[in-house]
Amino acid sequence: MKIVSIIGARPQFIKCAPVSRALRTDHQEILVHTGQHYDENMSGIFFEELSIPTPDYHLGIGSGSHGAQTGRMLLAIEEVLLKEEPDMVLVYGDTNSTLAGSLAAAKLHIPVAHIEAGLRSYDRSMPEEMNRIVTDHTSDLLFVPTENGVANLAREGIEKGVYHVGDVMVDALLFNRELAGRSDILERLGLDAGTYYLATVHRASNTDDEQNLRSIMAAFAALDRPVLFPAHPRTRKFLEQYGILAEGNVRLIEPLPYLDMLRLLAQATAVLTDSGGVQKEAYILQVPCITLRENTEWVETVEDGWNVLAGADTGRIIAAVSQMTGGGGRSGSHSAHYGDGTAADKIRRIISAFDKE
Rank of each mutant, 00 (worst) to 15 (best):
Ile110Trp: 04
Pro111Asp: 01
Ala113Asn: 02
His114Cys: 01
Ile115Met: 07
Glu116Trp: 05
Ala117Ile: 02
Gly118Pro: 11
Gly118Trp: 10
Gly118Ile: 05
Gly118Phe: 11
Leu119Tyr: 02
Leu119Met: 14
Leu119Gln: 05
Leu119Arg: 04
Arg120Phe: 05
Pro127Phe: 11
Glu128Ala: 11
Glu129Thr: 06
Glu129Leu: 08
Met130Thr: 12
Met130Trp: 13
Met130Glu: 10
Asp136Thr: 11
His137Pro: 00
Ser139Phe: 15
Ser139Trp: 15
Asp140Leu: 02
Asp140Gly: 14
Asp140Gln: 13
Leu141Pro: 09
Leu142Pro: 00
Leu142Ala: 08
Phe143Gly: 11
Val144Met: 12
Pro145Val: 11
Pro145Ile: 10
Pro145Asn: 10
Pro145Ala: 09
Thr146His: 11
Thr146Cys: 10
Thr146Leu: 09
Thr146Lys: 10
Thr146Asn: 11
Glu147Gly: 15
Glu147Lys: 14
Asn148Ala: 13
Gly149Cys: 12
Asn152Val: 14
Asn152Phe: 15
Asn152Lys: 07
Ala154Val: 14
Arg155Trp: 08
Gly157Gln: 09
Gly157Phe: 14
Glu159Pro: 00
Val162Ser: 04
Tyr163His: 15
Tyr163Gln: 07
Val165Ala: 06
Gly166Lys: 03
Val168Glu: 03
Val168Gly: 03
Val170Ile: 10
Val170Phe: 06
Asp171Leu: 06
Ala172Tyr: 06
Ala172Cys: 02
Leu174Lys: 14
Asn176Ser: 04
Arg177Lys: 14
Leu179Cys: 00
Leu179Val: 00
Arg182Ala: 13
Arg182Lys: 15
Ser183Val: 03
Ser183Asn: 04
Ser183Gly: 02
Asp184Gln: 12
Ile185Ala: 00
Leu186Thr: 03
Leu189His: 05
Gly190Met: 02
Ala193Thr: 08
Ala193Leu: 01
Tyr196Asn: 02
Tyr197Cys: 01
Tyr197Asp: 01
Ala199Glu: 07
Val201Asn: 07
Val201Ala: 13
